[in-house]
Design a protein around this nucleic acid. Structure first.
Lengths: 111, 111
DNA sequence: TCATCTGGTTACAAGAACGGTACCTCATCT
DNA sequence: AGATGAGGTACCGTTCTTGTAACCAGATGA
């Protein structure tokens, strides 16, 4: 059964994607960055409920995984901008499809 | 900024989707069920590394969330089949898109 | 001088997720 | 009688994730 390996890799690809956007706030962050660059506190305001700590952690993760870039502007008050990398942008259809599905799902269970 | 609420809900829909397929083996299970019904031990064989316990747990979760159904056939040896519900099947494009993206991602970082 | 804004970090703790091992049931096979 | 296959559950421990709260730094405004 040499096919097993192929199937595993195919499946693992799904898991890989889930791993990258599976954090509690990552989907939300990526969704907001689709619109363009955002600053730290701007994201905090866009995502009610997220704490400084969690936002910072998830942004580090996304950066480490190559989905977003961090850009520090030398000005005062300090300004740091986050934006999608090309790879991150390639995830847009996935995010939007998940958003669409999630909305329909919510509609279908909250009957 | 009344828009915030709209954005939040849109974002939360993404999180909702992640929540449902975010378990360590759920993506894999759903992926295999796209092909059709599968039995418990068949899934075990298709998903190397999963333990009985974890497979059972994740199947319960998916069932609870209405993505799959469990059907017990009265025969011997005992047979239990799992298959996607209509809702679960509606997730197919998402799973496949995540699989495609995951494969490309793996290719783009394993340079 | 003190507070404020931006963008963080660190310490600590609780809870959820995950994993290993063992055990169970029913029926057939040997 | 004992082993085997299918499909689980129970118990227990570890690790991962998330959260709370406090603190830090540079520069500016009151």
């Amino acid at each position: 059964m040499e096919q097993t390996e192929t199937l595993v890799q195919a499946g693992s690809a799904v898991e890989k994607t889930v791993e990258l956007i599976g954090g509690k706030w990552k989907g939300l962050i990526l969704y907001h960055l689709i619109a363009g660059e955002a600053r730290f506190n701007q994201l905090r305001r866009l995502i009610p409920g997220v704490t400084q700590r969690m936002l910072a952690l998830q942004l580090r993760d996304l950066e480490k995984d190559g989905l977003i870039t961090r850009e520090e502007y030398k000005m005062t008050p300090r300004r740091v901008g986050y934006r999608l990398t090309e790879l991150g942008r390639s995830l847009t259809p996935v995010i939007l499809l998940m958003k669409t599905w999630g909305e329909q799902y919510s509609a279908s269970i909250a009957k």
